[in-house]
C-alpha cells in the first residue's frame, strides 16, 4: 500500500510541479506572484478538452495544441494586465491586477461552459501493470514520463540556449540585462509563454488522469502550486520540481497514514515548519542583504 500511495503522490505532485514551474519562472524575473497562473492551467485543460472532443485528436496533439493556446493566452495576460503596471507601481499593485485577471478568467470560463464539471473523454486505454506488490496504471506512467521530459527540456533550455541565458540574465538584474542589449519586455513575454505552456500541459494531464475539468479548478491548484514553488525556493526551477513532488507526496501520505480530514492542514503545517527551519526554501539561495 505504501508504494501505491507513493505513486499516487508522485502523480499528483508532478501536476503541482508543472504549475509551480510557471510561478517560479515569472517570479524569478519580475518578482510577481502571478495569481492568474492557476486559471491559465484551467484554460489549458479546457483547450485540450476542446481539441479532443471536436477534432478527436490523440493525446500528444491535444497536449501541444493546449500548450500553444496557453502560450498566447499567457503573453496576452502579461501584455494587458501586467506590462502597463511595470515600473510604475509596487509589486502589490501587480498582484492585485493578477487577482483581477484570475477572477475574470475563471468567471469567463464559467459563463462559457457552465459551472458543472465536464468529463474528459478517455483518450487512452488504461492498462494496469503489476510490479510485485505495486499496481501502476499506464496513465500514471505517461504522466510521470511527460512531466519528467518537460522538466528536463526546460532545464536544458534555460542552461544551454541563448534565450535561457537571456532569461537568467534578466532574473539576476533586469536593468543590467537591458544594458547588455537584451530586450526585457520580450524576455518577460517569453517567460510567460513558457510558464503558461507548462501549466497547460499540467492541465491536460490532470484532465485525462482524473477525467474531470471545471472552471474553478485553477484556484486551489494554483494555491498548492504556489506553495510548492515557495517550498522549493521561489525563483529556482529545480526547486519548483522538488517542491511540487514533495507537496504531492506529503498530501497523499497525510491522507494515507494520518487523517484525510486534516489533509490540507498537514500539508501546509509541514510547509510552514520547513520554511521556519529553512527560510529560503529547499533549493532557494540565501541572498545576502546589501545596504
Amino acid at each position: 500500500m505504501f508504494l501505491e500511495q507513493l505513486v499516487n503522490g508522485l502523480t499528483l505532485g508532478s501536476s503541482y510541479a508543472l504549475i509551480a514551474l510557471g510561478y517560479t519562472m515569472v517570479y524569478g524575473i519580475i518578482q510577481l506572484i502571478n495569481f492568474a497562473h492557476g486559471e491559465i492551467y484551467m484554460f489549458g485543460a479546457f483547450a485540450g478538452l476542446f481539441l479532443v472532443t471536436l477534432f478527436d485528436v490523440n493525446i500528444f496533439v491535444a497536449l501541444l495544441g493546449a500548450m500553444a493556446f496557453c502560450m498566447v493566452l499567457g503573453m496576452l495576460v502579461e501584455r494587458v494586465a501586467y506590462r502597463p503596471l511595470r515600473g510604475k507601481s509596487s509589486r502589490l499593485s501587480a498582484l492585485i491586477s493578477a487577482i483581477g485577471v484570475s477572477i475574470f478568467l475563471s468567471t469567463l470560463m464559467a459563463l462559457l461552459r457552465g459551472t458543472n464539471t465536464t468529463r474528459y473523454p478517455e483518450i487512452l486505454k488504461i492498462h494496469t501493470y503489476h510490479l510485485g506488490p505495486l499496481e501502476l496504471s499506464s496513465l500514471q506512467i505517461i504522466i510521470l514520463l511527460v512531466s519528467a521530459l518537460l522538466m528536463i527540456g526546460l532545464q536544458l533550455m534555460i542552461q544551454r540556449t541563448r534565450l535561457g541565458k537571456a532569461m537568467r540574465a534578466c532574473s539576476q538584474d533586469l536593468d543590467a540585462a537591458s544594458l547588455m542589449g537584451i530586450n526585457p519586455n520580450r524576455i518577460i513575454s517569453y517567460t510567460f509563454a513558457i510558464g503558461s505552456a507548462l501549466a497547460a500541459a499540467g492541465g491536460v494531464m490532470v484532465g485525462i488522469y482524473y477525467n474531470a475539468v471545471w472552471p474553478y479548478m485553477g484556484t486551489m491548484a494554483g494555491l498548492k502550486a504556489f506553495s510548492a514553488a515557495v517550498l522549493g525556493g521561489i525563483g529556482s526551477v529545480p526547486g519548483a520540481m522538488i517542491g511540487g513532488l514533495t507537496l504531492g507526496v506529503l498530501e497523499i501520505l497525510g491522507v494515507a497514514y494520518l487523517s484525510s480530514s486534516y489533509k490540507d492542514a498537514i500539508a501546509f503545517g509541514i510547509l510552514i515548519l520547513v520554511l521556519i527551519v529553512r527560510p529560503q526554501g529547499i533549493m532557494g539561495q540565501k541572498i545576502t542583504k546589501k545596504v
Binding site: 499516487n8 499528483l12 482524473y210 486551489m220 491522507v255 484525510s260
Partner: peptide
C-alpha cells in the same frame, strides 16, 4: 471513515485506502 472536499479531483489516496 474518510473525507474529501468539494471541488477537488484527486481522491486516489482515499480509494487506495478503501481498497484495503
Amino acid at each position: 471513515d474518510e473525507s474529501i472536499n468539494d471541488g477537488e479531483t484527486d481522491f486516489t489516496a482515499q480509494v487506495t485506502k478503501l481498497k484495503n
